[in-house]
Design a protein around this nucleic acid. Structure first.
Lengths: 217, 217
DNA sequence: CGACAAGTTGAACTCTGTCAATCCGGGTGG
DNA sequence: CCACCCGGATTGACAGAGTTCAACTTGTCG
């Protein structure tokens, strides 16, 4: 495959991008059951994905930071398998999926990249599977966000928790009260400073030690 | 695609099957890191798959009964990602994976079947992800085995637990003591009879009610 | 018979969830 | 400008499920 072909394919890609936003907190990007047409990359803000089970309980699947892609888990179906909602002011790029997939067939690099994005989501599910303590879960959660922000050029030490405590609790499978208490204790132990939704990680070494087993699994 | 082609492909399949066994309890089918060459179908006995984490702790991934396939989760790599060991006397069929995958390209039915086998394993992981009680986990575990045995023509009501209590506990993320106590209580409550590794499910209705939420998830 | 591994039992303890009360900040409306 | 609300967050008291540790039993196999 020639260099030139890659370049032409990439310019094709550029054409089929649609910029969307800003979305306000609470607005949905897509809802469960919507026909699967596009995948979207978050450019700014945070998107929460979740499902509602038969008993009406919400289950948070994940949080998507700038630079991350949502909608990929619809890849094997005709409909989105979950809801995606903006947690704050969100900017998106939407990619027509049919066009992307045609392109992926021509561009092995893109294909590989899509698979990597998929497997990343799966890997994140591992954290929830293990029987980790509340401390380990919270530490892994914070370190995860920190690293993802760092990868996009944001400060890995000081950032906003854009999601509600109840969302964090739901995602980590803890009670909201436990989230509160763990954060408080982390602060008392000098692992971090927290004020409302603003956090500053102070004891990265100890935090990573706590999260270590979770992240390695 | 013609009928004739399917038939020829199936006869190809027959040629590349290699019967293996019997393996004794404790003998490995493959080990983590071994080059991925074959997938295997269990013909008789039980195979346990597991990994050993950096701290030396064993994690049981699953139990594979007659009629079930092992090695599929190596599909995206060059090496097996886990160990597989016989729990009792085991008979296997081994399939060369390179040959299988060539064949799968020709046979859409086979391709689809492989995907279904894969997604079944993923679905099973769901049970471990949720924060279910020990009772729910145990009930779901027993019902799961019962159904899988039934699908292969074995008795769904009376069967052997071929794995040790510690393996069950490890798999369900419980302490071995808890497994003992739950089984004892299930017996006292008339849900089952258990003697050593022999179980008889008596209260299927109530067992399924317990497992319901887990199995539906 | 004796030794060893697997399993069971009991008791204490720990973690986390639940419930209820309270706090806090941001809007709103008077 | 201030009093009032309201939802999210925090805090405390408590209970329950499950783990841990240690002792004990049982079965198996040499």
């Amino acid at each position: 495959m020639s260099e030139g072909m890659d370049k032409r394919a990439l310019s094709d890609l550029h054409v089929l991008v649609e910029h969307v936003g800003p979305l306000r907190a609470g607005e949905h990007v897509f809802r469960e059951g919507d026909p699967f047409e596009v995948i979207a990359a978050v450019r700014a803000g945070t998107v929460k994905t979740y499902v509602v089970d038969p008993d009406g309980r919400e289950h948070v699947l994940g949080f998507h930071l700038p630079g991350e892609v949502i909608g990929l888990n619809a890849i094997d179906g005709e409909h989105y398998p979950c809801n995606a909602v903006a947690l704050d002011t969100v900017m998106l790029c939407r990619f027509s999926f049919p066009k992307i997939s045609v392109l992926a067939a021509k561009l092995p690099g893109l294909q590989k990249h899509l698979f990597r994005l998929l497997s990343r989501d799966i890997g994140r599910a591992v954290m929830l599977a293990g029987d980790w303590t509340a401390d380990q879960r919270m530490a892994a959660f914070l370190i995860g966000i920190s690293r993802r922000l760092a990868a996009r050029g944001f400060s890995p030490l000081r950032f906003q928790l854009t999601m509600a405590r109840t969302d964090i609790a739901n995602y980590l499978r803890l009670a909201p009260e436990t989230v509160s208490r763990v954060l408080k204790r982390f602060q008392e132990d000098g692992l971090l400073q927290v004020d409302r939704r603003e956090v500053e990680l102070v004891g990265m070494v100890r935090l990573e030690a706590l999260a270590g087993a979770v992240l390695r699994a």
